[in-house]
Amino acid sequence: MKFNDINDMTTQVRRDIVRMVHGAQSGHPGGSLGCTEIVAALYFNTMNIKEERNSDGLLNFSRAGIGEDVFFLSNGHISPLFYSILSRRGYFPVSELATFRKINSRLQGHPATHEHLPGVRVASGSLGQGLSVACGVAKSKKLKGDNSFVYVLMGDGEQQEGQIWEAVQFAAHYELDNLIAIVDWNKQQIDGPTEKVMSNKDLTLKYQAFGWAAMLLEKGNDLQEVIRTFDEAKKLAGSGRPIVILAKTEMGYGIDYMMGTHKWHGAAPNDEQLQKALAQLPETLGDY
């Protein structure tokens, strides 16, 4: 997809996110908005995804993901972003976004495989588990001689979970250089600034000390920078080191009153706030 089209996509995805969270009157808009460039770049530019489609024009989803790049969302609470991207990419009809968090929906509050939503390979939500799963897939790809990449997105608050560091040492030990992890380093979590709640200290040094190649992405909401960083990261395949992109993003990015605060981590806008948000985000590809 051309750069300008991906840029339009990020605006539409942001509209989807706020409309979904408003529709459900629950969910997590802050992190979803902050990671929009990252996940859009992955699905519309960086990742090599098999393009076969079924008679409805939807992508044929293979859970095993053999011979294609795969993505895992470890911080499952930013599911509005994940669902919007998956539907806009063609995994399921965009109209289904209206069912987010509602009874009998495939779009559960946190991503699940239980309802067989195409595009989701494993459930996430209880934090700290996605990197381990991604390690298992990366290790499997090595064993199967499959040269495609495994991407996993985590939160910075999530780095407080001990299991993350078990997985970090596993990936380094097995030289999983087909694994590209991204940390959403927005420095906010539910209870406040991460520095106050439980400081991450220097994540770059931590990952390097564990044997990873660590890349700092200073402008995680600059689409061009995001795409360029992924291009650089892919060049590190074969280095024997797993790759982490520490992406500085802004929680709530794209909607002025949601930026610069943790208060919109897990809160839904009311009718008036929704209109205020949508006024800042032109409808580029058509609402669901």
């Binding site: 095993a64 700290g128 298992g136």
Partner: peptide, 15 residues
């Protein structure tokens, strides 16, 4: 904990 996650990931790929 990581072992269980790695196992889950390997199962996704067909192992």
């Amino acid at each position: 904990a990581n072992m269980i996650g790695v196992a889950a990931g390997m199962a996704v790929t067909g192992f």
